[in-house]
Nucleic acid binder design. Structure first.
Lengths: 150, 150
DNA sequence: ACCAAATGGTTGCATTATGCAACCAAAAGA
DNA sequence: TCTTTTGGTTGCATAATGCAACCATTTGGT
């Protein structure tokens, strides 16, 4: 493969994000972390991921500041992987993916898990809006390129 | 690799989404499509992707209904790749990734492209809300597992 | 204390995925 | 007509991934 292209230097924030969490497993691990999983074995069992890959991903996600390693909450000797603030801020990404998947990747009537508010059980949605709060479609938006722009 | 695990059968919508668009290049291609690119050469030049990979990804994205192939708009013989409704509905995912990247992957003061409303130039943001419009944090939400649940 | 099992990995090897370069047919331009 | 551009495909080399075997440390049971 010669070395996978890196997008770290790209001026597009989406590209940099994908460079960090765009690989196959990272976002699934983050999803499980949102779901409350913290231990190596929990991730491994729940995702069915190979242990060496999981080991590598947890290390990388930790290095990049998305997860942090903390001592066991129950006094045991093992360590736990927790989301950092940076990791928790991936919440909208997860919700966006979930919303799209619900809409297009399930047959009508097919059951799927749902994201709801804990207190009220209300469904959670996500909306694209302008600064002053108006909902907006892709066609009405435009990407302003900043760097080497004419 | 023996065969990459498929999440098509997963009951979690996020997982299915990642199964479809979670590979390295697909979302970048979709991003460029949002940016108005339509032709093979445009994607190839802009992304710096290998031509065989691009060819494969465009085919896959088309098969899965995210892109569609249409005849040239200017009467030429070549074909163009356009987003379908399914593809356009990935907009919130792109915005979410962009927003996260802006916040965490740029040094203070470092320039990056921006997403704004065409008409007014206003910045575009995305918000996670309940059905009745209240903004909500990850901690206040919970994933309801539907299938083989106790 | 002692043995057994679970936990949290690491290492080696086999298979895929990706990248690069060379090649090619069809279309567009001169 | 000749040349260049476009839109790919094919072959080969390397990187990423998966599986299984192994191992050190904890944990649990007796």
């Amino acid at each position: 493969m010669v070395k996978r292209k890196s997008l770290q230097g790209d001026y597009c924030p989406s590209a940099r994000s994908l460079d960090v969490i765009g690989d196959w497993w990272s976002l699934l691990i983050v999803r499980d972390a949102f779901d409350g999983l913290t231990r190596f074995g929990e991730f491994q069992k729940n995702l069915g991921i190979a242990k060496n890959i999981l080991s590598d991903r947890l290390r990388t996600l930790t290095e990049r500041g998305i997860l942090k390693v903390v001592a066991s909450s129950d006094g045991g000797a093992h360590q736990e992987y927790h989301l950092t603030a940076m990791g928790r801020d991936l919440f909208p990404v997860m919700v966006a993916l979930r919303q799209w998947g619900e809409q297009y990747l399930f047959k009508p009537g097919e059951k799927h898990s749902k994201l709801v508010e804990r207190k009220t059980g209300q469904a959670i949605r996500l909306e694209v809006r302008t600064e002053d709060g108006r909902s907006i479609s892709p066609e009405e938006s435009v990407i302003l390129k900043v760097p080497h722009s004419p």
